[in-house]
Design a protein around this nucleic acid. Structure first.
Lengths: 140, 140
DNA sequence: GCCGCGAATTAGACACAGTCCAATCAGGCG
DNA sequence: CGCCTGATTGGACTGTGTCTAATTCGCGGC
């Protein structure tokens, strides 16, 4: 999915297309993620959404992010045991994680080829695959 | 590293070889992980260690697991936002994660070939790479 | 065997992400 | 305008992990 225009009207359409009732709060939360194409934690989303006037509660931010994940509008990135990041990019791609700064960078999935993965056990289906390259600044 | 014999004496040697002072608690914790070659959470380790007599505190379990990770005796597996798993297998390998049961299975790293990963930014070094295949039971 | 000292361990308080719940609110529809 | 359903809210709660100050361990020297 590639949304170059993140007006609130367009976002409302996108939400509807995913079967989500577009409320004000949900649009603001979607806007926070889509307008800056970054990986944000729930707390960061809460802070961004609330620096505009209409206060949105923490519970709503969590509810909404979980709803978006469930409806495959965004994706969870689990790299840091202390918090989950949310990624508006749902196309196949992977991540570089700087263990010192916590910065996450995308790797385009189309470039990457993987061979030799085992067949899954019978009756199991793949939900998704994550690749995380953990990096740090070279010791000086 | 391949330790087939997990007697407490051998484990003491292994700890020393990694620059770790082998105390009773540390040996018990290492034993919990190495004797069953499984992925355990800190709480599971605590429970296992304490079903024998000498009570070990939660703080020690956490301290010790972090020490082991730092000394590269074990490895953290971050797949579940709610808790970290610890893996006694430090050789190159990847994971299949059943999102419904929470079960983790190893994939041998020697079989897997990956191409097309981008060059790292200058001055950055790889700390490690994780591959996680998230699976679930096929909808019936 | 005993002492002393640094390292390890401990209990309990604390921090913090995330969830739950019961009460309130919003907005579409008759 | 009032209803009804779903969304939102504050606040209490949970669970994982960390911190701290006090205690204990264990080893080397005597």
């Amino acid at each position: 999915m590639d949304y170059r225009y993140h007006s609130r009207d367009n976002l409302a359409e996108v939400l509807r297309a995913h079967g989500i009732n577009p409320t004000h709060q949900r649009i603001e939360i979607a806007h926070a993620l889509y307008s800056r194409q970054e990986h944000l934690s729930a707390d960061q989303v809460l802070a961004i959404v609330n620096q505009r006037h209409p206060e949105t509660s923490r519970a709503t931010v969590y509810n909404t992010l979980n709803l978006f994940v469930e409806k495959k509008l965004i994706r969870e990135v689990i790299v840091d045991p202390s918090r989950v990041f949310y990624d508006p990019n749902t196309s196949a791609h992977y991540h570089i994680y700087d263990v010192e700064t916590g910065r996450l960078t995308d790797i385009d999935g189309a470039e990457v080829r993987i061979e030799g993965l085992p067949r899954l056990p019978r009756g199991m289906v793949t939900e998704g695959m994550d690749i995380i390259i953990r990096v740090r600044r070279e010791e000086s």
